[in-house]
């Protein structure tokens, strides 16, 4: 485990003490600076005081709920927000993403999953300057600058749109990317509703890069949300 070159500040907002304790121990030993808040209002105050690099936010809290905190936080906070939820496949996660959260985790989660998400989010938020020009996942190499994609050394012929979708997914590797984000990035803001077109393109893309296009391992669908490009 390499020590991060910069010490990131992470604010954890969760009403359950056990979760706060577990997150603190997982994150502190990896040299993150952890600030703990036991409730929504508390969390917002601490966010203003400490200006963290990332916020981990529980959605189900008594009093000021997670969604509300997320909305409030987004009015001035531009760093990544990772929300935690107990229910899989529920609408509140999608609502949180719509309110500006960047990714979600379903409780219970492993420390590995949590760290992977946090690293992916911090990598993304640190700006494109830090993005490597070539992104590789298993046997696939995506050369962003040269607009070339190879699998096991053989070049894959992608259309312009397919490449842009793939590049965008890869630059946000391991983070959830909503259909809306892709559509806005690749086609433009006026096309955000056109999810059916996006699915067709993703389907073509999968046929070209996936070893088993019917059982994707790189481009995974996140039910009702969008996609996630898996590097690991």
């Amino acid at each position: 485990m390499p020590v991060p070159e910069k010490t990131y500040k992470i604010l954890v907002i969760d009403d359950e003490e056990q979760i706060r304790r577990a997150l603190k121990s997982i994150l502190s030993v990896r040299h993150y600076e952890v600030i703990l808040a036991a409730g929504g209002e508390d969390g917002l105050d601490l966010a203003i005081d400490h200006s963290p690099d990332l916020v981990v936010l529980d959605l189900a809290m008594p009093g000021m709920g997670g969604l509300e905190v997320c909305k409030d936080l987004r009015t001035w906070f531009s760093g990544p927000i990772l929300v935690l939820s107990v229910r899989p496949g529920e609408a509140d996660k999608i609502a949180a993403l719509d309110l500006g959260a960047d990714d979600y985790l379903t409780k219970p989660f492993s420390a590995g999953e949590l760290l992977a998400r946090i690293r992916a989010l911090l990598r993304r938020s640190s700006g494109h300057a830090a993005q490597p020009p070539v992104i590789s996942a298993s046997d696939i190499e995506i050369d962003i600058a040269r607009r070339r994609v190879t699998r096991a050394g053989h070049e894959i012929d992608l259309t312009k749109t397919e490449f842009e979708i793939l590049a965008y997914l890869a630059q946000n590797a391991d983070c959830v990317v909503t259909s809306k984000m892709i559509l806005e990035h690749v086609w433009g803001p006026e096309y955000v509703e056109d999810t059916q077109t996006l699915r067709v393109h993703v389907s073509h893309l999968r046929k070209k890069i996936e070893p088993h296009p019917s059982v994707p391992r790189y481009i995974l669908t996140e039910a009702g949300v969008g996609f996630r490009f898996c590097i690991s």
């Binding site: 059916q196 699915r199 389907s203 999968r206 088993h212 296009p213 019917s214 059982v215 994707p216 391992r217 995974l220 669908t221 039910a223 009702g224």
Partner: peptide
């Protein structure tokens, strides 16, 4: 159920993961 159009492999991939 919130039904939408998906590819079979897509769902299968999610199950396999």
């Amino acid at each position: 159920p919130q039904q939408e159009w998906y590819e079979i492999g897509d769902i299968l991939g999610s199950a396999i993961s």
